[in-house]
Design a protein around this nucleic acid. Sequence first.
DNA 1: TTCTCTAATTGATATACATCAATAGAATTC
DNA 2: GAATTCTATTGATGTATATCAATTAGAGAA
Lengths: 192, 192
Amino acid sequence: MKYPVIADHVRRYVAPKDSDLELLQSLLNEVSMGKGTFLLQPGTQVMHEYFVVEGCLKAYYMDEKGSRHIIQFAIEDWWIGDFDAYFNGNPSRLYLEAIEPSRLLSISYENLQKLYDEAPIFERYFRILVTNAFISQRKRILSTLEKDTKARYLEFCTSYPNIENRVANYDIANYLGVSPENLSRVRRTLKS
Amino acid sequence: MKYPVIADHVRRYVAPKDSDLELLQSLLNEVSMGKGTFLLQPGTQVMHEYFVVEGCLKAYYMDEKGSRHIIQFAIEDWWIGDFDAYFNGNPSRLYLEAIEPSRLLSISYENLQKLYDEAPIFERYFRILVTNAFISQRKRILSTLEKDTKARYLEFCTSYPNIENRVANYDIANYLGVSPENLSRVRRTLKS
DNA sequence: TTCTCTAATTGATATACATCAATAGAATTC
DNA sequence: GAATTCTATTGATGTATATCAATTAGAGAA
């Protein structure tokens, strides 16, 4: 098995045959990135989804006013990419930037379709992953509806304990949708 | 075919065999509700997902302070339910309330598992649906990060033209995470 | 129709937060 | 180690929006 981490990840959710896993491995490519480099930028036509083997990335959009909005962080064992572009063929507006030197595995759109057709167990695997992602996004929406900044920051720290220490505070503030100054003040009230 | 609407919906996303659709139909139950009645309330142990044949519902949570937070509306051809409870067996905190007299089709957890095992095409069908739901939730998160209330209200009206006229303004305000008073003022600036 | 109740609007005030600006502290580079 | 750049903190001010309170409009019931 060339990439045991991803095989382990698949086995955590479904029960694949060895041949399924070997097919998967044959359809993957390795990607290495330095800190601050981009996996994806608007305009790029390359359509892949990525599995993080090692490292940390942030996914963000820029709006018309030039403001950045972080939609997701990703660390080891996370899939990351632009579902909308990948899945519906829409042009991507997403930036995928490495916060740390990172190693990833990529799968192209064509290869994923091939995987679905030849090893349907992966339909289930991705259905489960997307369902979980859907649930955690819903929690995030609910959190912005019902909680103040302090509570949301604490929730972020407990939900993503591994990410919190690897990401700059202004990026966390951005993810939470508040100004870095405000997050700084909120953090001060927590040190007591 | 007992329930042609749901068969049409499935065919919109995948290419099922007739036997697949007949199996689906045999696993569904009909539900009728009056306006203001509940399909689901916290504590209810019934674990179903629902397809709206006719009518309109709202899905919301109550927080510790007793405030309501609408997470989703649903009209014809939408699936609605509590994925987290349904999928992970967590106790449900969700309210599902009919805004109009509604007719729905329900599928139980056991029946859905049976469906997946006997007609794997439905793995793909639900994978696609959940992926689309994930994408639209992501758009909603992005919208709250980058847009002001007026822009979000306009976006809501264009994204859900069928829902806007069927739902009270204070429910739309709640969905958007703003006060009804503020939405009222915003709407006034639009009448020119 | 008239009454009643709920929803929508409008006004006045309070508050959380953004923004601008300056400084202090870390980290990176040479 | 010094210099430079990036990050975090702190202060002062402005603004959007929540909240409280009152009024008007509209919808449904008798």
